[in-house]
Design a protein around this nucleic acid. Structure first.
Length: 479
RNA sequence: GGCCUUAUCGUCUAACGGUUAGGACAUCGGCUUUUCAAGCCGGUAAUCCGGGUUCGAUUCCCGGUAGGGUCACCA
């Protein structure tokens, strides 16, 4: 979907500072950002802090930190300013007042004289009657002059069925029930989302509004306000929901939606996160699954956004992350693995063994905790009977081990390839390869499940390898 | 309950009326490894149901069913 040629694309991400950023919010930001970047437009970060009761300390910093981790940079925002500063709604109250006055003057706004308790009774009645609650049915005939102590309500200019076009959903319409006299300014002086975002988007020149489809039934309300204010509608882009693991409900914080920065802590790559999140709800077509941030921007297109929701599948995220790790250069992989290894295991020799077995950096910790790497620093406790591969005669195993010891001793270059070659040569000459490879692996690691004997020998080094082999052979003799 | 909306393998999806319905994750099997992991190769697996339109529907229309959203001085 190409934007209007003569109009510069302006998108925004407008979170409320009510806690951490979860994956749903991040994806909305991602799409808005990618669309602006692709079209050489502007991406704005605006903070919608009009609900002081729900506001959580530190949220704004957290939101910015999350976006920065992903490399989603904004062109205008509360920290860097811009032509339409300020970028926090709590600092834009004058704008809202100005437009509220315009609506009052036009006769499209009035003071709401009812208390919250009274409105609650209306609502309960509507619920009991199995009807939608509509405040406009209780619209007072002679409302008092608005002095700011009461909520200011919008007076819907015309009760009608609205139709509009959405860049994702196509042509949409809604019944009159979707229209109501919603609150513009709360009794605490702050505007509601319904009012504030429209004023801000107007003043900031936002051309495309991207948001979750939970707003779809609010659109007629917005439309009636655009009409009352006689302003042009921007483009609407409804994003499909990200569903929870059960595949039914939208993924919310209470059913497992994690803080995006938790993924950073677990060692996911930001680019893999972008790749994964982008593909829930959007797909460029074709069979490419792993894309870079750059490719995402190039490929992103509104008409490829899906209309139905998708589940958040962590297994696939792990796979995508692993694919992105493969794309990283050796040096970076090494640095990261070493960083995650505890002091006593920080050794470059372990890197090749680990890199094949992890899909995210925190898996390094899991490997360490599971004891898979214990052989590296701890002499194994050997049960000599376990050296006997499939009940092979004790003498044969003993001979095989001694042969390996002899050959290893004579091996000048104790490198992985040499070790593998010589060990394979010996084992192939036997009745069963396991009669050589198993006792060597077990003698070195003491583990029933462990990496192959070649890599273990290499990691331990010639001296330690020989020592462990001799020790095991000795135990075997005494069996 | 009103209004709105959605529906392809278990999951994420591709197929802009004609394909043996493709790919990926997961799963299963094989190779490799005594073993585990990884890797490589292969298999199982889907168009919600019922009507239309059409020479021909996954695709267009209608109905049903099932899911989701919304009906706040929250966003």
């Amino acid at each position: 979907m190409e934007p209007n040629q003569n109009k510069k694309v302006v998108t925004r991400f407008a979170p409320s500072p009510t806690g951490f950023m979860h994956v749903g919010g991040v994806r909305t930001a991602l799409y808005a950002w990618a669309y602006a970047r692709k079209n050489n437009g502007t991406f704005i970060l605006r903070i919608e802090d009009t609900d002081k009761a729900r506001e959580v300390e530190g949220s704004i910093e957290h939101i910015m930190k999350s976006l920065k981790w992903l490399g989603v940079e904004w062109d205008e925002g509360p920290d860097i300013g811009g032509p339409n500063t300020p970028y926090k709604q709590s600092e834009r109250l004058d704008s809202y007042k100005k437009y509220a006055q315009i609506l009052i003057d036009k006769g499209f706004a009035y003071a709401d004289p009812f208390t919250e308790e009274e409105v609650e009774i209306f609502r309960k009645k509507a619920e009991a009657d199995k009807k939608p609650f509509l405040y406009r049915e209780y619209r007072p005939e002679n409302p008092p002059v608005w002095d700011g102590s009461m909520p200011l309500r919008f007076k819907v200019p015309q009760i009608k069925s609205y139709e509009w076009d959405d860049l994702v959903r196509g042509h949409l319409k809604a019944g009159e029930e979707a229209l109501d006299d919603f609150i513009l300014i709360k009794s605490d002086g702050y505007p509601t989302y319904n009012f504030a975002h429209i004023i801000d988007d107007l003043e900031m020149g936002v051309t495309h509004i991207m948001r979750g489809d939970e707003f779809i039934s609010s659109v007629p309300k917005f439309l009636s306000l655009y009409d009352a204010l006689e302003i042009k509608r921007p483009e609407f882009v409804m994003l499909p929901p990200i569903m929870g693991p059960d595949g039914k409900k939208k993924l919310g914080k209470r059913d497992g939606a994690k803080d995006i920065l938790d993924y950073e802590k677990e060692g996911y790559l930001p680019e893999a996160m972008i790749n994964f999140l982008a593909y829930i709800g959007w797909n460029p077509g074709g069979e490419k699954e792993v894309i870079s941030k750059k490719e995402f921007i190039e490929l992103f297109d509104i008409d490829k956004i899906h209309i139905s929701g998708g589940k958040f599948n962590e297994e696939k995220l792990d796979w995508i992350n692993k694919e992105h790790i493969k794309l990283l250069n050796e040096k970076i992989v090494k640095e990261n693995i070493l960083k995650w290894l505890p002091e006593f295991l920080k050794n470059e020799k372990l890197v090749p063994l680990i890199r094949e077995r992890i899909s995210k950096w925190s898996d390094v910790k899991i490997m360490v905790d599971s004891g898979e790497l214990d052989f590296f620093y701890k002499k194994p406790e050997i049960d000599p009977s376990l050296l006997l591969f499939k009940n092979t005669n004790k003498k044969i195993i003993e001979n095989n081990l001694n042969e390996v010891i002899k050959v290893f001793n004579e091996l000048e270059k104790f490198e992985f390839e040499n070790i593998k070659e010589i060990l394979n040569k010996i084992s192939e000459s036997k009745e069963n390869r396991g009669q050589v490879l198993h006792p060597v692996r077990y003698a070195l690691s003491g583990l029933s499940k462990s990496p192959d004997p070649f890599i273990i020998s290499f990691i331990l080094g010639k001296e330690e390898t020989l020592e462990r082999l001799k020790s095991a052979t000795l135990k075997l003799e005494n069996l």
